[in-house]
Amino acid sequence: MNRATVATPNRGVRRHTGLRAYGYLAPAAVLFTLFLALPIVYALYLSLRTVKVKGLGLGRGARTEVWAGLSNYRHALVGDPDFLGSVGRVALYGLVLVPTMLGLALLFALLLDARGARARGFSRVSIFLPYAVPAVIASLLWGFLYLPRVSPFLYVAGRLGWPQPDVLSQQWVTFAIANIGLWGGVGFNMIVIYTALKAIPSELYEAARLDGASEAAIAWRIKVPVVAPSLILTFLFSMIATLQVFAEPMTLRPLTNTISSTWSPLMKVYRDAFTRNDIYSAAATSVVIALATFVLSFGFLRLVQRRAFSQENS
C-alpha cells in the first residue's frame, strides 16, 4: 500500500524518532494513567458496587461487596432530596458569586490598565494577594469576622448604633459563603484579564484617540471585546469551581446551624464517603457531578465559541 511507495532509505531513522517520541511522552502518560485515568475507572467501578451485610453485621466476613447495578445512581438522582437540594443551593451561590466576581475583576483590570493609573504594581499585588491565602484559612478568618461576639465589624457597628445583622442566618448564609469566594477569586481573574489587556497593541488605542474616543469608550468598544476570550475562560473556570465549592462551607459549618452537611454537592460526597462510610454511593454522586460539569462546560463553550473566537478564525 502507501507504505511501500514511501519506503525510502531514511525509514529506519523515522521509526527511531517515533520510538523516541513515545519515550518523551512516557512520563506524562504514566502520570496521567496512574493519577487520573485509573482513579476515574476505579470510581466508575465503585459506583456500580455496594456492600451487603448479613444479620447483625458484627465479626469477620459479615460484610460482602456485591454488584449494585445502577441503584447508586438512581438513589443519588431520584431517591435523595439532599442532592437536588445541594444543587439548588450551589446554583444560587453561583448566580450571586460569578457575575459579581467577574464584574469586579474586569473593572479592576480596566482601572489598572487605564492611562494615568497610579501605584499599579502595589494595587495589583494587593488585589491578587487573597488568592494566595488557602481557602480553609480564608474561611476561618471570615468565620471570625462573621460571628457577632468576636467580629470587630459588628462590634463597631454596635457601638455606632447600626444594625448588627447575623450574616450566618438562613437568609444571608449563601452570601456569606459567596463573599469568601469573591475575596479570594477576584484577584486571580483580574490577573488573567489584565494580562490579556496588556497584549493589545497600542496602535489600536492611538487610532481610537485620533478618532476622538474617550477612555471610557476605548474600554467599552476596544478593550472589552478584545479580552472576551479571557472573560469566557474565567467564566468557565468560575463555573467549574462553583460546582466544586467545598472548603468554605465545610470550614464554616461547625460555626452555625444553617450549613447542613450536604450544603454543596461535594460536601454530600464527602459525607457519604467519610461520615457514612459508603464510598459506593459517594462514587456514583461524584460521577454525576463530573458528567454535569462536562456537559455544562462544553455546552457553554459551544454556545459562545463561534461568536467570541470568530475574529481570530476569519
Binding site: 459567596a178 486571580f188 469551581a241 466544586q244 465549592v245
Partner: peptide
C-alpha cells in the same frame, strides 16, 4: 470559591 481548592480536593479524592 476557588479554582485551586477544587483541583486540590479532586486530587485528594483521586489519590
Amino acid at each position: 470559591m476557588r479554582l485551586h481548592s477544587g483541583i486540590r480536593i479532586g486530587a485528594v479524592l483521586a489519590a
